[in-house]
Design a binder for these strands. Sequence first.
DNA 1: CTTCACCTAAACAATT
DNA 2: TAATTGTTTAGGTGAA
Length: 407
Amino acid sequence: MNPHASTNGQLSVHTPKRESLSHEEHPHSHPLYGHGVCKWPGCEAVCEDFQSFLKHLNSEHALDDRSTAQCRVQMQVVQQLELQLAKDKERLQAMMTHLHVKSTEPKAAPQPLNLVSSVTLSKSASEASPQSLPHTPTTPTAPLTPVTQGPSVITTTSMHTVGPIRRRYSDKYNVPISSADIAQNQEFYKNAEVRPPFTYASLIRQAILESPEKQLTLNEIYNWFTRMFAYFRRNAATWKNAVRHNLSLHKCFVRVENVKGAVWTVDEVEFQKRRPQKISGNPSLIKNMQSSHAYCTPLNAALQASMAENSIPLYTTASMGNPTLGNLASAIREELNGAMEHTNSNESDSSPGRSPMQAVHPVHVKEEPLDPEEAEGPLSLVTTANHSPDFDHDRDYEDEPVNEDME
DNA sequence: CTTCACCTAAACAATT
DNA sequence: TAATTGTTTAGGTGAA
């Protein structure tokens, strides 16, 4: 796995003091430093030597709201990876059992190792009161303290809060998965029925902007949704209605008559106008991450952000299968950073130059009776083979009978 | 408590 | 005529 996933590493970073300590222990090695680059999620700052790295670490990644939030994201990334690993190990075990031991032991090896612990933890965590969040990122002072105390604080609590692990393939949880593995990241939303942490407006805009001509027909937008997000392969009637609704409602979406009929374009100016409002609410992103159950949404955004960092080179290749997620992620990353900035320095501006992605607003995460047995949800990227990434776009995934999220 | 941004549902008109 | 596309209205949630 990736070394960054080390919770310890992350946490240690949070405390400048500890930082120096670990430094002493490991003279010139640091999980967050490699190849002359800061490996802090989303940083990648070039640091000629270890000293400058430490300097950079302490100045740029000090114990503040942003770092704290990023740390949480990283924790979730790790957790998801562990879950994934546990699943795959189980699968591997089953495969081996099947091939070697054959029928003898029908039950493969439900012993996902210690990883299981993480699973159980999350499960119980999700069941636990989701508001045992001690820190309030919004208040740099308070939150920091606990963090400094050690991993336990952040880990446990945030894990609980984040409790994303009840990754049922329900449509209501924005359970990101993440990974340092870029490929997987990009494929995540495509394969996992996880609700993307973006508003419809943002998604629509993204879809349109991604098109060569910056314009799409309604149907093309639909296709983009289903192509990019497994989540939107269900309950089509619902989200399609929402898409249309958004197109009509927001002034930032302009309908243009075209040969093909009519296409939708984005009025960036209008879209930007909306941002200031959201920006003001940005700080909430951080807060959300730990205060309400809505946290998972923004967290996802953050997660995406972190993933984006890693995938930048990938999604920049327009030729790639789906640079979209990357873009989304990067956009969100900016959003996240922006939010952070705003948190520290309020009234900056309506930042027109910043990414327009308004992912801050969570797509409501409705509480869903979590289902412990987490079924064999498609969570597993590998497992989701049933959702062929290259499914027929023209074939809409109309409401499947399976809409357990409908009360 | 109010406002705001979002989401979902649904009615209905216009097009295809 | 049926399906699709657009427009509107209404109700509900959560955050500020």
